[in-house]
Design a protein around this nucleic acid. Sequence first.
DNA 1: AAGGCGGGGTG
DNA 2: CACCCAGCCTT
Length: 293
Amino acid sequence: MLANLLLAWFAQHARALPWRQSRDPYQILVSEVMLQQTQVDRVLPKYAAFLATFPNLHALANAPTAEVIRAWAGLGYNRRAVNLQRAAQQVMAQYDGQFPRNVAELRSLPGIGPYTAGAIACFAFEQDVVFMDTNIRRVLQRALVGPDLQVAPPERQLLEQSATLLPSGQGWAWNQALMELGALICTARNPSCAQCPIQRVCRAYSTATPPALPRPLRRVAEGQREAYHGSRRWLRGRIIDALREQPQLSLSQLGPRLKPDYSAADEAWLRDLVVGLERDGLVAMQEDRVGLP
DNA sequence: AAGGCGGGGTG
DNA sequence: CACCCAGCCTT
């Protein structure tokens, strides 16, 4: 019953997202990696541009890594760009350019974990496999367990239930629909239970507690708003951004772009950041100059 | 089992 | 501000 309700709703309300129109494993791979911890709305414009620049596996595998990192601007988690290209290169080298179809082999590619391997097997090759992401987890927990997300069943258990509920031959629609419901209706905050197609069979709905009262207004602490600004993560992002514009920079050129009062005494600090980026394959250093690889 | 990794949007 | 977002990798 749950599956029937969910799939009927999905057939009516699914967004026409570009990666849903494709079964090309390369295009699916690109979309899934971009969507790791990144919202659909932010991915959409980058996705089209990326595929225009790197239309197929061959183009991506053979591109300068610097170009791939540039195409990743605005998406965050820049290591994903490096791993995506390495995955493309590995498919070319180890699989003769033909994507492996099973989850275990997909899982061996860099940057492809349990979720993405399942998603490619399902969304590109239309296999009846189950996997977990933040939307599927929340939807299944609410529907099958109840409203309290604090008492989380083991991941394995939710996956088993998903596999049991999955209508044979419709894995693609089942997983897409779970994720779509989580994105549009069964949201983390303020879910739209009134519009929910599965409310009749949802444990969280039948035992739903009234919506929490609005939080008391916090005092706006203007002074201490920034914890992220100036952090290591932020600095790494600034370095990559600078190198997207300027192919090569010396440390003494780079430093002032991160820290207005940069001096020679800061070089060890800056070098540590650069070494970290180098280890991630995001920059290359030669002599005293830094650049995208 | 934790922490690191980007960046922007939302309540 | 705290939280959220189609996770993955290293330690």
